[in-house]
Simulated assay, not measured.
Amino acid sequence: MGGGEKGLLDLGGKTLLQRVADRLAPQVDVVALNANGEPDLFASLGVPVIADTLPDRQGPLAGVLAGIIWARSQNRFSDLVTVTCDTPFLPTDLTARLLAARQRDNDLVIAASNGRHHPVFALWPLGVEKKLAHFLKTQSDRSVMAFIRNCGYVSVSFDFIRCGDQSVDPFFNINTPRDLTEAAQYIDMA
């Protein structure tokens, strides 16, 4: 995408971050952002900005760990819901459906669509903090799915959404200028 903060790209008059926050906010008690850039870049979003607690930008799991540590410090949450900043069509019932699929309090629950897992779209019990920290210290494969497989998980399948006469994956993510152009065609219909 040419560098810079992808979440600050404009899509139909709002940043990607704002679009994602707008869809997520009604589903959670607090929206917070994991970002390692300059926090002032995100000030207009009006949410807490949480940097990774581990050095060397170790990927999405480091962000999840930072989020869990932050959520635990608030003394009022039992879980963390994670999404990505480049998915403007994320389901408006994501959190409710992840919670409904949980079978035990310590279950990790992830989203899926079209036969594919989306492990960053997940419900994380705060109790996985120590296990996640240990995993990040000891494992060479630090992918989100590797950790989730290690813990065990439940998945929830989401249908495509209708945008005009098109069906769009709710986890459609914007990685290229072409993706941004495609998303712009659907944004008013989602």
Rank of each mutant, 00 (worst) to 15 (best):
T15R: 10
Q27K: 03
I187P: 13
A25N: 08
L65E: 05
F172L: 13
D29Y: 00
L33G: 00
P60D: 03
T181D: 10
A190Y: 04
L33I: 04
A51H: 12
N150K: 15
V156W: 02
S73G: 13
Q27A: 04
T176C: 07
W124C: 09
T53P: 12
Q166P: 05
V83S: 12
R72K: 14
V120S: 05
T53M: 06
D10I: 07
A43C: 07
R142M: 09
E38H: 05
I148S: 14
R23L: 10
G63F: 00
P60T: 03
G115E: 13
D179S: 09
L98F: 03
V83P: 14
E38V: 05
G4A: 07
R23I: 02
R104M: 07
S73T: 01
A21C: 13
P170E: 01
A25G: 08
P48S: 03
L41V: 02
T84G: 11
P177W: 00
A133V: 02
Q18F: 04
D56M: 10
A62S: 15
A43N: 13
D56I: 02
T87D: 04
V128C: 14
I161Q: 14
L126S: 10
V30M: 04
D179G: 05
V154N: 10
A21L: 09
L24Y: 00
G115F: 05
D165N: 15
T181I: 03
G46K: 09
A35H: 06
F171G: 13
F171R: 11
V154Q: 15
Q58T: 06
G37K: 02
G67E: 01
A96G: 15
D22M: 09
L24R: 00
